[in-house]
């Protein structure tokens, strides 16, 4: 199985990162180079950069639209999103040399619970009529990564993860000390490759839909 570990641990990270970066940049360029469309903004909207930032932060942090208008899925969605934010934050802290295992585990638990909860919500009539298999798969992927991180102990191995990531980033890749981490690394690679091409790119699309569509450019 040495070749498989090599593939997942040494080769795929670069493939995944490359696909992610290229796909992401492609999307962003595609959207930013779009012709200036006719103004069709919705009122009222924030005008200054500060107001806009504030709105974005509130929306991202509290999912206000769901809270106000779709309370049924607000909590599960909030739980899942906060879980994801926490895992991403944990990853950055790990890179900085501050492995806060608790943050990783809490994030993992929240994201896993949130995605499962969302999954059950999707089975209810109101959402089922909208849902295609890919929406279930997206949730499963989030669940797999977060549950995987807990089960494999990935979130607790901050130092090993850091060492591994630094190896990748400094172009001298080495397999992680504990082979069981490879599972989680594999899930993350799948996630990275998938991200720009699936609907989960909404975290970036949202910038455009808010700044260039809903809020308008005419004022």
């Amino acid at each position: 199985m040495g070749w498989l570990a090599y593939l997942v641990g040494i080769v795929l990270p670069y493939v995944a990162l490359a696909l992610f970066v290229v796909g992401f940049i492609y999307k962003i360029i595609c959207w930013s180079r779009a012709p200036r469309h006719l103004p069709w903004e919705l009122f009222p909207y924030p005008h200054t950069a500060g107001e806009r930032l504030g709105e974005m932060v509130i929306e991202v942090a509290s999912l206000r639209s769901l809270k106000l208008h779709n309370r049924n899925i607000w909590l599960p969605s909030l739980l899942m999103h906060f879980g994801i934010y926490a895992v991403v934050a944990w990853l950055f802290l790990v890179l900085l040399g501050l492995p806060v295992a608790l943050l990783g585990y809490l994030g993992g638990v929240a994201a896993a619970a949130g995605s499962l909860w969302m999954f059950t919500k999707r089975l209810g009539r109101d959402l089922r009529i909208l849902t295609t298999p890919v929406e279930y798969l997206n949730l499963l992927l989030v669940f797999l990564i977060s549950a995987g991180g807990i089960i494999t102990g990935f979130f607790g191995e901050g130092l090993a993860v850091r060492e591994y990531m630094l190896g990748i980033l400094s172009l001298s890749p080495r397999l992680p000390a504990r082979p069981s981490l490879l599972w989680e690394i594999f899930f993350l690679e799948v996630f990275l490759v998938y991200l720009p091409f699936g609907r989960m790119i909404h975290f970036a699309a949202k910038y455009f839909t808010y700044h260039r569509v809903k809020w308008g450019e005419s004022h």
């Binding site: 959207w31 779009a34 769901l66 208008h69 959402l127 949202k206």
Partner: peptide, 16 residues
């Protein structure tokens, strides 16, 4: 075009 393709591609099917 831009709002059109964004709306085609990015609906999260949340039902709000």
């Amino acid at each position: 075009w831009l709002p059109y393709v964004l709306s085609l591609d990015t609906c999260m099917k949340c039902g709000t």
